[in-house]
Design a protein around this nucleic acid. Structure first.
Lengths: 340, 340
DNA sequence: GACTATAAGGCAATCGTTTGATCTCCACCA
DNA sequence: TGGTGGAGATCAAACGATTGCCTTATAGTC
């Protein structure tokens, strides 16, 4: 609208001049300072000036003064993984509720936490959520030394007591129980990478559940995938070659399960007739593949929510270990059935 | 390491004191000011002090002074859509090359561009990439008035000449040509939502290609999906009910194609035997579904790359309309074949 | 020996907000 | 008349980095 307003953005000084008061008055009115004594008429003049000039506080100046940015960072390893999409959504929702922006970025083996922080510099975020495996212990200590609160999301780390995770062991337990209840006794596990924290917990939960149900835990019934569809495809072949072929498989993630189903088709193994498949996580999409996947739905949004909630109340030296207690359930579709 | 360094972060003043020089010297050394005259010995003292104290410039202070943040923002409608994952990856890569951080956030119908900017305040990013349909014309004008450069990514907008897009019409053309070359003449289109810019361009490309190949363009051969698998599922049923059943369908996106394949299975229509299916975009996953999808692979990363490149050289009043020229090809898999 | 040029840094204003401390009325009370 | 006590603002010092302009030395010149 205001053509010619090129060049300089409106500052407090502009608004103050327009309203005929001091800058500090504007600032206090806008921040809702309750100790401010001001006539209604003046307050109105201030608000009018703010609106007419379209004033918006300068983030850098405010941050410099208050040492707060109103911003949280979230680092994830890979945008293509739908698991993180859900976590981000949950996190953004709470952040917005708290008038705070969530800024997401990705880091991985090459471009790790360190280089990300070098770019970010100091004082660009008030806290950092770290989802996934990109952070080393040293990097985390560096954050603590800088006085920046951080929180691991969906992973734990030895020696660090700052994380929020899902109950992956219980998820594995639910999956196994579902298979056991169908009558399976030869239950295999298509596990995620041993470097992955969630994969470890799911594998542990799988073994614990088998024992709990009085079943043996032969290591030949576990194969590894890198959490990709290709990985699942290859790993399934491995399982099919085992001396005793399982009748069901608990797969650590969705993508691998899709690869696994492909392998079964390729080998002419009917699913679920000759092999039941159940996987961790759920997406609308799996309803539409064949056979529709039975899954364990995880409270990923809740995980993101809790991440932000915990982080924003977290001092640089506090500690927290939380397991999100959101609903978790087996969504039974077509890929699981009683053994033949 | 330095226990007790609690409380205050190191500032230029600390480093200056340690090196025994003025703050300005530190600043100039670090910024590589070529006009600075300094003895090697002094320079070394400065660098040592910087390292020993682990100094990192305060982003807010620097931004306040220079009016630059070293940061670009990217707004997307939905993290769950793998299309955006690819765009983000491309964008982050270039941003990193240019020593600049890309901060991604999501906005949609409810939480639109406006509320996002209210949270961000002024001066938190040097420019904004807007992927998807969340921005209104007024909001864009607001950005321009604020002096913030912005660029639409993967969409155009009437009356605004600031976008970078893919050649969706050509993608549609390639898909249709592939089907025509297989011998199809009854080619349907499973189109995206009419509100979507890409959907419009793909539909236009589809019709143009049909005409180009001398085929008719009956409107009964187009059905609409909302770009979801469910939407594709329902839309495919519509197509199957048409008076003349097509022998091939060009689907506007992957998720819908997966739903469409499901619908075909449900109805006992063999794909590709009785119905060929080709979709826009490619993912490792589609290799593993049955039948493996034939797709048109789009240069999404390149789109993200160009977005950042263009934006960082863009003044608030410049204009740019670019069609990314990256490679685009039909990946032939199992879901397309000659008509019976 | 006075003068100039250059090398090597120092000074201080500035960016825009926030916030504790201060100031100026004016009414009211003794 | 002098003093007190708000009400309703204003003042000014930060926050930390950048950058145009100054100030010292020292070396070199006539």
């Amino acid at each position: 609208m205001s053509a010619g307003s090129e060049g300089r953005r409106t500052t407090l000084a502009d608004v103050a001049a327009r309203a005929g008061v001091d800058r500090s008055v504007i600032s206090r009115v806008l921040s809702g300072d309750s100790r401010l004594l001001i006539r209604d008429e003046t307050r109105q003049r201030v608000l009018d000036a703010v609106r007419e000039l379209g004033y918006r506080p300068n983030a850098a100046a405010r941050t410099l003064r208050t040492q707060r940015t109103g911003t949280l960072g979230l680092l994830i390893p890979d945008y293509a993984n739908p698991v993180y999409a859900e976590i981000i959504k949950g996190a953004e929702t709470v952040a917005a509720e708290r008038d705070c922006v969530l800024l997401t970025g990705s880091a991985d083996a090459d471009r790790g936490l360190g280089s990300y922080l070098d770019l970010l510099g100091q004082g660009r975020v008030d806290g950092l959520l770290l989802a996934g495996e990109m952070a080393s212990k040293e990097a985390l200590d560096g954050l603590t030394a800088d006085g920046l609160p951080w929180l691991l999301v969906n992973r734990t780390m030895r020696g660090e007591a700052r994380h929020v995770v899902l109950d992956d062991e219980r998820a594995a337990g639910l999956a196994v129980r579902h298979l056991v209840e169908l009558g399976h006794t030869e239950i295999a596990h298509l596990a995620g990478p041993s470097s992955s924290n969630t994969a470890q917990r799911r594998a542990r939960g799988y073994r614990a559940a088998l024992r709990e149900h009085g079943l043996e835990v032969p290591s030949s019934l576990t194969a590894r995938t890198d959490y990709s569809a290709d990985g699942g495809y290859r790993a399934m072949f491995q399982l099919l070659d085992a001396q005793t072929r399982p009748t069901a498989v608990f797969v650590a993630n969705l993508a691998s399960a899709i690869g696994a189903l492909h392998a079964l088709r390729t080998q002419g193994v009917d699913a679920p007739g000759a092999m039941s498949v159940i996987a961790v996580h759920d997406l609308p999409l799996v309803e539409h593949i064949s056979p529709a996947l039975t899954t364990v739905r995880m409270p990923l949004r809740e995980l993101g929510r809790r991440g932000v909630e915990l982080l924003s109340d977290l001092g640089p030296n506090d500690t927290v270990k939380e397991v999100v207690t959101g609903p978790m359930d087996v969504v039974v579709r077509e890929s699981t059935a009683p053994p033949r």
